[in-house]
């Protein structure tokens, strides 16, 4: 009986529905909306990593755009300087490696601080990367950015394919696969002893130190993992967007990452994913419908902070628990 019950867990059903929904999406929605969704998915990967730092470790970074840029530029610069290596199975590890290196260096400096010092420091360091990407015109293309062509895969080229075909064909399934892999890995991380230790640090740094957790080192690990998630998201985003610019390393972009996470709700594991998907549609439709789209985005943010601090997912979870509670009591 118990076995059966665990089999039909509502969570599992939701996952199955979501997975199949994602996979069938190219047949349901228009190419344009599919691409919007793919933007959302790449940001969702970033937000998953970002939440390890914000939601689970209690560190707010206003500079995660830097690691996103590390991934995206890793891909774009490989395309420019090593065209032979322009193959997905090589590019993804390259992006991960570069974002690992940069987040390890920047993280080493940042994790010595917490709270607002940490936030500003992360911001300043991402702006350093921005300045370098912007100023070294001959290397990085400066503010023009770099073009990202369609990659190969194990020697197979997608030549003669227009990008929408590529994106709604093979790449969509690749992206969804990467997303679920990232999702499951992150789920394992937060439920592992390491994840529990991070939460202990978040809740009470002194106590965590006393029970033997090496606070600063754990923070650095969390920082690096979340940086690598950003790098992965950035690399995948590069193919969807087809063009990378230093803007992704600017702190405004980092602010948008924080926005997404909060919009979805950082108290719930899947919250940032929801936030990333919603944010993309919100921003693009606001941009398409009015000249004053920043006003709409800004006002939405303010309203969410004021009345829905748990974000969309947080609000839903609270609603669900409120509905669930009476029925639970009834069963008992």
């Amino acid at each position: 009986m118990a076995q059966l019950k665990s089999f039909v867990r509502p969570g599992l059903i939701i996952y199955l529905v979501v997975i199949s929904g994602f996979l069938f999406l190219p047949r349901i929605v228009s190419t344009f909306n599919l691409i919007l969704f793919q933007y959302g998915i790449t940001f969702a990967i970033v937000a998953l990593g970002f939440n390890l730092l914000l939601g689970y470790t209690g560190l707010l970074s206003f500079g995660h755009g830097a690691y996103f840029a590390a991934g995206a530029y890793g891909v774009a610069m490989t395309a420019k300087y090593f065209p032979d290596l322009f193959s997905l199975e090589i590019l993804i590890p390259i992006a991960l490696l570069i974002s690992f290196l940069i987040s390890a260096i920047f993280g080493f400096v940042c994790v010595r601080h917490t709270k607002i010092f940490f936030a500003i420091l992360a911001l300043a360091l991402s702006m350093l990367l921005y300045a370098l990407l912007f100023k070294f015109y001959h290397l990085t293309g400066g503010s023009d950015g770099l073009y990202v062509k369609i990659p190969m895969l194990f020697g197979h080229t997608f030549a003669n394919m227009r990008r929408p075909q590529f994106l709604s064909g093979f790449y969509h399934y690749f992206l969804v696969g990467m997303f679920f892999a990232a999702y499951i890995v992150m789920k394992c991380i937060v439920n592992s002893p390491f994840g529990k230790a991070l939460q202990a640090i978040r809740d009470n740094e002194v106590r965590a130190e006393l029970i033997g957790i090496r606070v600063r080192r754990y923070r650095l690990y969390a920082f690096i993992i979340s940086g690598m998630y950003s790098g992965l998201g950035g690399a995948l985003w590069g193919f969807v967007n087809g063009h990378v610019t230093p803007d992704v390393s600017h702190w405004i972009f980092s602010g948008e990452l924080v926005y997404m996470t909060l919009l979805g709700g950082f108290g719930v594991f899947a919250g940032p994913v929801v936030g990333a998907l919603i944010f993309n549609f919100l921003k693009l439709y606001a941009m398409g419908s009015t000249e004053y789209w920043m006003f709409i985005i800004g006002a939405t943010l303010i309203i969410i902070v004021l009345v829905l601090p748990g974000g969309v997912a947080g609000g839903l979870a609270r609603l669900a628990s409120r509905i669930k509670q009476p029925s639970d009591k009834g069963a008992a």
Partner: peptide
């Protein structure tokens, strides 16, 4: 995070 985000908004 709320304080920073509200000024960002």
């Amino acid at each position: 995070e709320y304080q920073l985000l509200i000024t960002f908004g």
